[in-house]
Design a protein around this nucleic acid. Sequence first.
DNA 1: AATCCGCGCAACCGCACTAAC
DNA 2: CGTTAGTGCGGTTGCGCGGAT
Length: 346
Amino acid sequence: MGRAPCCDKANVKKGPWSPEEDAKLKEFIEKYGTGGNWISLPQKAGLKRCGKSCRLRWLNYLRPNIKHGEFSDEEDRIIWSLYASIGSRWSIIASRLPGRTDNDIKNYWNTKLKKKIMGMAPSQRKAPHHQPSLPTHLPMAVSSPSQSLSSSSSSYQGSRSYYNPSESVVGLEPISIPSNLLSNCNTYTTTSTATATTSTLLQAQDGFMSPMHNYQVKEGLLMFGGEPSCSSSDGSCNQISYGKEMEYEYGGSGGGGGGVGNGEQMGLESFSYTDVFDNQKFMIGGNVYGGCGLDGWTPSQKPNDQMLVEPPLDYGLEEIKQLVSSNGCSNLWFDENKTQGRGMYY
DNA sequence: AATCCGCGCAACCGCACTAAC
DNA sequence: CGTTAGTGCGGTTGCGCGGAT
């Protein structure tokens, strides 16, 4: 059974928005808000538009603090590094770029940045100065609380992607993300084996802070820094407007606890973290030390809901070019066929 | 000056997900 | 617990504009 249309297609206007429509929508929302119901909003606002269209227009164009125009080099780096890390999860990428929408980033990537990267000659690269930084014994699981992996475990296994340092490209310029864009602090110390592991990981970065590892180990506590931002083509404002949350979980139990606030601290034994991503749950380690990854999950951990990946912390241009030029492979570290749907990447 | 062509961007489409009933 | 309406997201489309011919 197909889904019912969200609106009466015959009676709604399509195409570019007029200044009058923009003004109407803006005025209405500023006055009354969305009321949590986009479907009925156009009628209330006196617009002959689909609610979806209104939402899109508002979130991508009319809402305050939208940044348009040229992307900076720093933004470029963030985009391509995140793309290599998580693929075309534009909303997640956008969440790291304040004022940018995922539609903007998607367009920018497709029309400019991709070509820019592909056009970069290897000679432009700097000398290597890093080693693969994610320890082999620290698998990272990325899971979705709601992903529906209908496929069998073998399919799931097939989707696993382990980061193999021996195969990583050494000699390519790492893509550094300015930590001030990604994190609120950059200090850490270690007090435990677990933290030492993470710390090693971080120290190996030599100043690099992965977008996917936007946290610090501080006084035995793992800290995450997140930068509030809004995003999404349909414009989900990841943490501000919609209160969507992300959980990071640590430890094999997979349980975690309730989320904590952005930038708060938590013990390493078991924690979860609430951050800026939409319902993103990142789990560090099914078996942190054993490195057995998936095999470390117990049935209660919903293995079908877990996907183990080992996102690299930085990427060379060649890696990204490879990524860009390969067909159907959205990134280096995830299910190349996206067979599991979006949830696979969450 | 007219036409063609490529590019950039806004908007749409359809599917997945979620919460409410 | 199943159904359904609403929302979120990523991929795709198509229009407008500017440069080339």
